[in-house]
């Protein structure tokens, strides 16, 4: 069965994915909303920046995060100035990295959901004297609920599957930055294939059932 070290890695991964997903739903919603509604010339730029992690190798993202968050980097200078120290090798650092890394997986489904709603329901709500905030919470959120569920599932699953970025800025510290994917890598490198199979197989099943749930739900509930 899973050793204590493996269990600690599983627990840490779930904690990281949960916190990252919650932050992304809060941060990603206004970004997605803006991207869905704006006619600004900046839309393309912001959309491209959000989508970068889709195409960049995680090692590139991790390398730049390591430099930017480090003691000589701009973010590192700021965090030190604020008295927080530097972020690499800490759990908070992993959260920051994961938020960047999983951003498109949350923002894009939300953006699509908002675009599908269009401006019509909001205009109707406005004629009924609903304030923009009121209209957002009582009209947009319920209509965009499938988009939020998709975004949350994808953001969570993608963070669970994160490897390259964590490897670059994590430092492999037990219970702080050693997540499941890094633990699997270590088992394989140490030729401990039985232990690797246990975790890797678990990851495979987890990912499959998450996606199965996602796609089954979509088929069943579209347009409801």
């Amino acid at each position: 069965m899973l050793s204590d070290v493996d269990l600690a890695a599983v627990w840490l991964t779930l904690k990281l994915a949960t916190i990252t997903t919650m932050i992304l739903l809060i941060v990603g919603t206004p970004i997605a909303w803006w991207l869905a509604r704006t006619g600004s010339k900046w839309k393309g730029v912001i959309g491209a920046v959000v989508a970068l992690p889709l195409v960049l190798p995680p090692t590139v993202l991790g390398f730049y995060l390591l430099i930017a968050l480090g003691p000589h980097g701009p973010v590192g200078q700021l965090t030190q100035f604020l008295g927080w120290g530097v972020l690499p090798f800490t759990f908070a650092g992993l959260v920051v990295a994961s938020v960047f890394y999983s951003m498109p997986f949350v923002v894009q489904p939300l953006q699509q959901a908002f675009e599908a709603i269009g401006s019509r329901p909001l205009e109707v709500a406005a004629t009924l004297r609903a304030s923009p905030w009121d209209a957002f919470f009582t009209v947009v959120l319920p209509l965009a609920k499938p988009g939020f569920i998709t975004a949350a599932i994808l953001g969570f699953a993608h963070t669970v599957g994160e490897f390259g970025v964590v490897l670059m800025i994590g430092g492999n510290i037990p219970e702080k930055t050693r997540v499941v994917s890094v633990q699997i890598y270590d088992h394989v490198e140490a030729l401990e294939y039985a232990e690797a199979h246990l975790l890797a197989g678990g990851m495979l099943l987890f990912s499959f059932f998450v996606l199965l749930a996602l796609y089954s739900r979509k088929g069943a509930h579209t347009w409801k």
Binding site: L66, G70, H72, F89, I169
Partner: peptide, 8 residues
């Protein structure tokens, strides 16, 4: 890399 970037 960890040392070169000053993180360690």
């Amino acid at each position: 890399q960890f040392i070169f970037t000053g993180n360690a």
